[in-house]
Design a protein around this nucleic acid. Structure first.
Lengths: 153, 153
DNA sequence: TAGAATCCCGACCTTTTTAGTCAAGTATCG
DNA sequence: CGATACTTGACTAAAAAGGTCGGGATTCTA
C-alpha cells in the first residue's frame, strides 16, 4: 500500500509549483534544493509530469516549470494515478485500471468487497484534495508569514 | 498503493481456513486448488503465517492447516501488516513502522497531513474487518447453501 | 553572436522486491 | 513400513525502484 519515492517527489514538486503559481516559472534546481530531491531524478519526474500535461516548461536562461492548469483543477488522485497506476489495492476493484484476478468467483468474492471499500476510502480522500487545497494547508500549518517565498514546503 | 500477490493469496487462504474453522485442518493442496494458487508458493506463505502465529499446522497423513486464534480475533489489518509491512502510504505517517522522510519540515508538511488521512481511511476499513466478518460476507454474497463445503471462496 | 544557463532525451546502472520453483527432510497415520 | 503432508532453506528469473550520466536543444543577455 505504498507510494513510491518517485510519487512522493512528484507531489512535493507540484506543491512547490502550486505555491508559486502566478509568479513565473521555478527552476528544477531550486525545487530540488528546497525539497531535498536528487536533481537528476527530479528532471526525469518533471519531464514525465510535463508529457502528462500537468506542468509546462520554459527553456533557456530564465527557464523553469510552472503548472499548466490551475491548482484547483489538479487533484492528488490525478497525479498519483499517472505516476503509479491504480489507486486500488488490487486490480479487480480498480475503476480505471481493472484487471481480473485469479479468484474462483469474482462477483461473490468477500475479499474483493472489502478491497472495494478500501479503494473508495483512498479515492475519497485523494480525489477531494486539489493542489490548491494543499497550498491552503501549507498556509494553515505554517501560520501567516510576511513573505510568500518564506513558506517551507 | 498495491497489495502484493503474496498478500492477496494469504488473505484468500486465511479466509478458506476461516470458513472451515472448527472442522479440523485443511490441506495446502485443497486450498491451492480451490483458490488457483501455485501450491509451492502457498506452502511458503502458510509457513510464514504459521511462524507469525496466525495459523497452526498438523503434519502427516491427515495433516493440514487451521487458524490458531478465533476468526473474530484476526483482522485483515493484522495479516496485511505482517505480510506487507506498513498500511500507510508513506513511512512518515505510519504508526507501527514510522520512518522520517526527506521533506524539510515534517510537522508542517501538507502532503503528510493528507497522507495521514489516507492512512486513517485505510486502517479504518482494514482494522474493522475480521476473518469472521469476511466469512459472514461470503455467506451473504452467496446466499444460503445446503452444504458448508459448497461455499466458493 | 558567443556563451552561459536551463530544460530535454534516452540510455544506463545497481539494488531490492516479487513471484515463484525445487530438493530433500521430518512427522504422522494406518 | 510406506504413503501422505508439512518443513526448511536455497535458488532463480524477471520486474520495479531509485537513481545517474552524457550530450543535445533553447533561450536570454551582454
Amino acid at each position: 500500500m505504498k507510494l513510491s519515492q518517485r510519487g512522493e517527489y512528484a507531489l512535493r514538486a507540484v506543491l512547490v509549483l502550486g505555491m508559486n503559481h502566478g509568479s513565473g516559472v521555478v527552476r528544477i534546481r531550486d525545487i530540488a534544493q528546497q525539497q531535498n530531491i536528487p536533481r537528476r531524478f527530479l528532471e526525469q519526474i518533471l519531464n514525465d509530469l510535463k508529457s502528462a500535461g500537468f506542468v509546462l516548461s520554459k527553456r533557456g536562461v530564465a527557464g523553469g516549470y510552472r503548472l499548466q492548469r490551475g491548482p484547483n483543477e489538479i487533484s492528488l488522485a490525478d497525479i498519483i494515478r499517472h505516476l503509479e497506476g491504480p489507486l486500488a489495492p488490487v486490480g479487480c476493484v480498480s475503476v480505471n485500471y481493472y484487471q481480473r484476478c485469479s479468484c474462483p468467483d469474482e462477483g461473490a468474492c468477500a475479499i474483493r468487497s472489502v478491497m472495494q471499500e478500501v479503494r473508495d476510502a483512498i479515492v475519497g480522500v485523494l480525489e477531494g484534495v486539489s493542489v490548491a487545497h494543499l497550498c491552503e494547508r501549507v498556509r494553515d500549518l505554517q501560520g501567516p508569514l510576511e513573505n510568500p517565498l518564506d513558506y517551507i514546503i
